Structures are given as structure tokens and as C-alpha cells.
Computed example of a mutant assay.
Amino acid sequence: MSDNDEIFWNLVDEFIQRANERCDDADPSMVSAALLQAAARFNAFTVAGASVDRKEFTEEIEPSLRYLTNQYRDLLRDNLEDYRENYKVYMRSDEDE
């Protein structure tokens, strides 16, 4: 695993850990919605920050939307498939022990 891969997966784990902690005092669907909003806001910031000016940013809106929504769809599909294959492992309740 490269340094970048390790940094990436550590970040993913940190975000998931924080989301799981927030589920102690907020409904998981609200945590999920907040994560989506945060990702959308941060991605807009990233696209804007990579643009040299407002004109370039405006030109990048549609390609960025396509790229980011396709990425999300693919990642979500992969994770849903993973949960389908491992449902009994991931969703095991304390009653199963």
C-alpha cells in the first residue's frame, strides 16, 4: 500500500468513525444526509479551488457533476454489493452472539 493509499483509507476510517459516533445522538439517516451535504459542499470548494477563475469554474460545473455523480454511484454500488455479500457479518446484532 502506498503512502497515499494509507492516507486515503485512514481518512475514510476517520470519517466513518465520526459518523458512527454521531449516530449515538442523531438518527443515522440524518448523519447520512449531513455527510452527503458536507461532501457536496467540499467537492464544490475543491472544483472552485482547482479553477483559475470564475469562467473556468463555470465551464467545469457540468463535467464535475458528471464525474462526481458517476464516482458516487460506482462507490455506492460497490459498497451495497459488499453489504449484500456480507450482510450477516456486517449487520450481526448483539443477539446473534
Rank of each mutant, 00 (worst) to 15 (best):
N4K: 12
N4H: 11
E6F: 10
E6T: 15
E6S: 14
E6R: 15
E6H: 10
E6Q: 14
F8Y: 11
F8N: 13
W9S: 11
L11K: 14
I16A: 06
Q17T: 15
N20Q: 12
N20H: 05
R22S: 01
R22D: 02
C23L: 04
D24F: 13
D25S: 15
D25A: 10
A26S: 11
P28G: 05
S29G: 03
M30K: 15
V31E: 05
S32Q: 13
A34H: 06
L35E: 05
L36H: 08
A38V: 07
A39R: 09
R41I: 15
F42C: 14
N43K: 06
T46R: 13
A48W: 00
A48R: 07
A48M: 06
G49H: 05
A50F: 05
A50C: 11
A50H: 03
R54G: 06
E56R: 07
E56F: 10
E56Y: 04
F57D: 00
F57S: 01
E59F: 01
E59C: 07
E59Y: 03
E62K: 02
E62C: 00
P63W: 01
L65T: 09
R66A: 03
R66V: 05
Y67W: 09
L68H: 06
N70S: 08
Q71L: 09
D74F: 10
R77Y: 14
D78P: 05
L80F: 08
L80A: 08
D82R: 08
Y83V: 15
Y83N: 04
Y87T: 08
Y87Q: 10
V89C: 01
M91D: 06
M91F: 12
